[in-house]
Amino acid sequence: MLTIKDLDVWFGHPPERVDAVRGASFVVARGESFGLVGESGSGKSTILRAVTGLIDTWSGRIEVAGQPVTGRHRSRAFHKTVQMVFQDPYASLHPRHSVDRVLSETLHLQGMDRIDQRIATLLDSVGLGRGFRFRYPHQLSGGQRQRVAIARALAAEPQLLLLDEPTSALDVSVQAEILNLLADLRRDRGLTYVMVSHDLAVVAHMCDRLAVMRGGEIVEEMTAAALRQGAARSDYARDLLAASRGYAAG
């Protein structure tokens, strides 16, 4: 579904050039859920942004459903296949657009028919009642906003969802609801996920395989089962695992 090969992403020009991602390669199969973990600045979100065309300074190979993409331009077919959900539900919805407008605009752009009916179905599928349809973002809680953002991503009926820290701005009880929703949607629709997170437990819960990143490079690829057993091969992944187990006095 997604193939990344020798991906380099950089910002700025020499001598101030920053290499955000260096030589990253991984393959995500159809229907799989793949995690990217690492600390801030490790380049995990940058990879997603390069895939969706939000960054054009990259080299290497990105293939989505067998189709290579170039630069910043993405075809209509691409947006029908790939959608992204961002971290901050407060920032990713237009404050003056109602839920109805957000969804109908997206559906129009995707060239969908029966828009009215589709909005109702979308709201149902993310667990928001029809009563939410004419609300504005400020009338929604963080979890509800993230549900709207997920509904918007689903509007195009994509096959691949890129999830950039979808729950890190939410309370833990709300996080559990959103993670359950994402798991249900994946099962029901056969979606493929690439999920970026700094929370190893969340990734272990949601993903089958994951890559650990540090300083723009992938240091290790492992299965979620190996992560749970603490069977990391690289020193860095081991340290990260130990640190995320929590605070130990000493």
Binding site: V172, A176, L179, N180, D199, V202, H205, L227
Partner: peptide, 20 residues
């Protein structure tokens, strides 16, 4: 209890997270 249970845990895989 609900808060504790809604957290995904590395050492205890669960099929679904319990919600509050």
């Amino acid at each position: 209890q609900g808060l504790l249970n809604s957290l995904p845990r590395l050492d205890q895989p669960v099929e679904r997270l319990s919600t509050l």
